[in-house]
Design a binder for these strands. Sequence first.
DNA 1: ACGATATAGTTGAAGGCTAAAGTAAAATTG
DNA 2: CAATTTTACTTTAGCCTTCAACTATATCGT
Lengths: 164, 164
Amino acid sequence: MSQNGEPQWLSQSEREMWMRLVGVTFLLPGVLETQLKRDAGLSFFEYHVLAMLSEAEGRTRSMSDLARWSNSSLSRLSHVVTRLEKQGWVRREGCPEDRRATNAVLTDEGFAHLAASAPDHVEEVRTQVFDTLTPEQVAVMAEGLGRILHQVDPGAFAAPSGGC
Amino acid sequence: MSQNGEPQWLSQSEREMWMRLVGVTFLLPGVLETQLKRDAGLSFFEYHVLAMLSEAEGRTRSMSDLARWSNSSLSRLSHVVTRLEKQGWVRREGCPEDRRATNAVLTDEGFAHLAASAPDHVEEVRTQVFDTLTPEQVAVMAEGLGRILHQVDPGAFAAPSGGC
DNA sequence: ACGATATAGTTGAAGGCTAAAGTAAAATTG
DNA sequence: CAATTTTACTTTAGCCTTCAACTATATCGT
């Protein structure tokens, strides 16, 4: 704990942004998840995992890389991949070169399910987020959010593209 | 589910912002919570509930209003208030005027604990978020996040200030 | 090459969140 | 004014996440 004098409280403008950022982080995932759960039987996080896999070379990533790309701990990812495996949307494969590693592979069924779910999801994202913003706001927010994300986790989205 | 033709996919710029917003919503709460848990024994959500109470008239809000101010469902809030009550930081009081309603009141101990925790928390927020942003970015992001939040939940932060 | 350490991932238990159902009181409607 | 509906909140059960412990393999230092 710090032992300073008066801390530097947030300015009015910072406070306003902060309250809204907290609101968005609390509420937006739930809203998106409602649509996804209803239409695709997926949680927001599960969808994101499938999406990150679908964009990798060979639709394959090592668990560690997939964890980085989906902003999650390895433990959380492991549990979720187990569930996705039971649904037949993902398959685990051992890596021959490094026998500690496991690759997660998006199955054809998983890809088909993701492809079927994507249009409605994107439409929801557009409705909830981008329809309310100007292109200039999108550009500035991309920059600002990028800085925050880099501060919070310098390793986010910084992984190779294929399997192990 | 929609039955349109090709959906309107995200542009490059939108996609970039989207990935980063998802990253921030997934990771930022966890980072702040690590500090809060260590230094104050509070989850990020619990801290936020106490903070919203501390700013209300008489440090009192009805459960419904507090739920709106803390971006949560009534159910989630009810569970959390039960925990905070066990710690002695919040007290429940029935409302005489409307006997369905319950007021949550921040106790003196709760206020003291919040006051003791606030400086470190604000410093962490500053480090993780505001130190990386220019004032112009803060202003634009406040505006953009406000639009998203209003779309996601028009009722957010739109409640009276005192008890029931 | 050997021991120590780091990396990759899984698992089980504990606790928190969500959704659905339940309770009770107020407001509305015929 | 009685019946219905709405509002306010709590509770239970099930699922998900987190945390800590564990296994196995690879790498590093000497």
